[in-house]
Amino acid sequence: MFEARLVQGNLLKKVLESLKDLLTEASWDCADTGIQLQAMDNSHVSLVSVQLRADGFDKFRCDRQLSMGMNLTSMSKILRCAANDDIITIKAQDQADNVTFVFESPNQEKVADYEMKLMNLDQEHLGIPETDYAAVIKLPAAEFQRIIKDLSQFGESVVISCTKEGVKFSAAGDIGVGNIKLAQTASVDKEEEAVTIEMQEPVTLTFACRYLNMFTKATCLAPQVTLSMSPEVPLVVEYKIGDMGHVRYYLAPKIED
């Protein structure tokens, strides 16, 4: 028996919004420690890793490990039937071929349940090496979204360059060149408005705008986003899911021939 109840159901709605453009199907791996998802997009350029810890749920029961393969487009359609303040419960029997989503209004006066077929997905899991990143940049998630949106007008790629002075985002194309520089904030009233940079060595990498734009669908999840970069390795873009986990996107860089 698997059952996970989340009073803050809108977190799950937001997680799905942040996945559905990148992935059409994926497996949710459930264990007594929580729920995890790891999947690459079809082109193997990006990977999404989601973690939802058991202790972040209001009730969590997972008697035996199970992998629930889901069509994320369908799951997203179902979650869109939940109101933002609904309590969401996910339920499945052991070795079941379907999953049930229950949405309860806060006053318990409306209860809806939706059943969805599970899929048998033969998914390969990737081992992501532990990496000490050369530069770790934290910035407001909305600011990052804006920068990527703005620079996407100029070209297909964004160059992210991190130095002691700050971080620079650049794009070039037919209409011209765009550069956006962010300095580390000296002092801020609110922690979530800060730009912080931890840098061991300067890094410059080039990434496809198309993917970065899809990652920013997770902006609704967290006030801050963390970018981790090292020379010639994939970028990590991380959004926290409340205090229960994270959505992490990995993106392979563009490499000079």
Binding site: M40, S43, H44, V45, S46, L47, E124, H125, L126, G127, I128, P129, S157, T206, A208, V233, P234, Y250, A252, P253, K254, I255, E256, D257
Partner: peptide, 14 residues
């Protein structure tokens, strides 16, 4: 010119 790398280059299948 630059080319798009894939993650298979960096991450091994477990």
């Amino acid at each position: 010119m630059s080319r798009q790398a894939t993650l298979d280059t960096f991450f091994a299948v477990r």
